[in-house]
Design a protein around this nucleic acid. Structure first.
Lengths: 122, 122
DNA sequence: GCCATAGTACGACATCTCTCGTAGTTTGAC
DNA sequence: GTCAAACTACGAGAGATGTCGTACTATGGC
């Protein structure tokens, strides 16, 4: 989406291997919702939440898409500020930025995760 | 988004003038998030929430787009199940389906509205 | 050095999305 | 019946998105 504006990606703590991400204060609601509004990405976020803060590499998610498509989705999530990524060896480890999100948009992530947990009823 | 599947739009109560909308039990999370992931639509939802359940016609929202674009956004919101629309006279009145959403995705709408209320910090 | 593993870059493509303008419909007021 | 107001339908266009395949770049183990 073009009109979200460019995601400011600066980071003060230059932790080695950490990939650029937007600071907490600049997370954009529309951008976060857009990142969550895709079944694949929702699943990634959901599984990261289930991991309880543990780091998962990209291939730990058995997603029904190719590696290059995975790269795309992980980047969308990182640029929206939902996940944090840093390199370790040949892998890229992912964690959910749950605390940052809770600080910026209280209750939002929890509500989405709860909603994602109970799919359909009828 | 194609892979949400077709929105089931049946309605038992054939209230005259009510436009078709998905039943509460069939609201799709990804679909709802996608509908909210647009600044214009987020604003519509926000203003409807501020109206506290009152009905607002489409032109009551002073949106920076043409009428046909408004029609488009209101339709997206209705088909996602976020708003209810029914005709009255030459107008189409809109209300937020706050209770339906709270029943299906507890806390989600509230969190989004709260997040939309406090835009940016730095 | 060689190789396998994990991931990226890039281009391509089909589809979707947002936007508009113009023409049309429906409704209520006169 | 005529007219204005509110909205819709339709087509078009620019741009974004999700997907893939191929080629490429680390990184670590041998």
């Amino acid at each position: 989406m073009s009109y979200y504006g460019s995601v400011t990606i600066d980071h003060d703590q230059d932790c080695p291997g950490l990939l650029p991400e937007p600071p907490t204060a600049e997370l954009q609601l529309a951008c976060v919702l857009h990142a969550l509004a895709d079944p694949i990405r929702l699943r990634i976020v959901s599984e990261l939440a289930d991991a309880g803060g543990d780091e998962l590499n990209c291939l730990a998610f058995e997603l029904p898409v190719t590696k290059s498509t995975m790269t795309h989705h992980f980047r969308v999530l990182r640029e929206a500020g939902l996940i944090r990524q840093h390199r370790r060896g040949t892998s890229k480890m992912n964690t959910l930025r749950a605390e940052d999100l809770a600080a910026r948009f209280p209750g939002l992530l929890d509500a989405v995760l709860a909603a994602a947990g109970c799919p359909a009823r009828h």
